[in-house]
Nucleic acid binder design. Structure first.
Lengths: 144, 144
DNA sequence: CATTAATAATTGATGCATCAAAAATTGATA
DNA sequence: TATCAATTTTTGATGCATCAATTATTAATG
């Protein structure tokens, strides 16, 4: 009772559920024949929501390291889903844009993302999701 | 309201909180001068709780892939915290044991792990943690 | 017994994470 | 203006994740 199996501790449950979520998304994307990963999708969606955003800002919004953003954008660029546009005011920054191809993928994924959320939330009332959100915010803050 | 910022969606909160937890642990271990990572610790602790366990079983308990277990054990072995012992009954399996050195590290970490849990749980009543556990179990199941 | 299955662990390829250091460019200040 | 500081992005090193394929060994079966 005092120091039991790690997986029963709430912090490990959070980790394991996060892993499960990531795996689930990657599996569904694969099944639907969409060549993208969970993390690539996060970046693509954020760029779509703010066309022209730069990498530093994107890193903040997506809560990723700048270094990780660089490398994942390389992949999205290789897949021709996004473009790095030179910024006329500063040669240090790129403005990130979704390509036509990228927009197609986004349209394809949006309904799937809703489905995934619905599935994850199955049999959980809205009030409980609200509680969950609050608890997670609190824990996140506690670990700052 | 309909399709807002990803980070406000509970699933992304779970992911972000998990990341924060991992970062927090790694930071504390580093600060305390303990040369171990969050994932290495999970394996070390599981081996300590069942000396002689084999890699397949360890993978199941730690919810990791066998391949990941192999490589993380390589690191723990290199650091001389664990030993892979030949199994007399089957040349396919190793029995995993913590070394004296490994036990020292475990003794060092155990109180720190409690501290971390306490910190994460700050200002959160036990009943809420119970609710959190149940919700996470449900979500985990939903994503199977 | 010989062949085929199944099992345990490893390896290779690829994606993403962190940290630290570097490169390129721009801004600030003496 | 020359130097130094700050900013944006990239790169290298290392750790961990997944998937698929391989190796070695053991079990099952005909």
């Amino acid at each position: 009772m005092q120091d039991k199996d790690l997986s029963s501790v709430f912090l490990f449950k959070i980790e394991n559920t996060a892993k499960q979520f990531r795996k689930y998304k990657n599996r569904i994307f694969k099944e639907k024949g969409i060549d993208i990963t969970s993390d690539q999708w996060i970046l693509l969606k954020n760029i779509n929501e703010e066309e022209g955003i730069n990498q530093t800002e994107l890193a903040i919004r997506s809560k990723k390291e700048a270094a990780a953003v660089t490398r994942t954008l390389d992949i999205l660029e290789r897949k021709k889903m996004i473009v790095r546009k030179a910024n006329p005011n500063s040669r240090r920054v790129y403005n990130l844009m979704t390509s036509a191809q990228g927009k197609k993928v986004i349209e394809q994924i949006l309904p799937i993302a809703l489905e995934i959320r619905k599935q994850a939330k199955l049999d959980i009332p809205d009030e409980d999701v609200e509680v969950l959100n609050q608890l997670l915010d609190k824990i996140f803050d506690n670990l700052k």
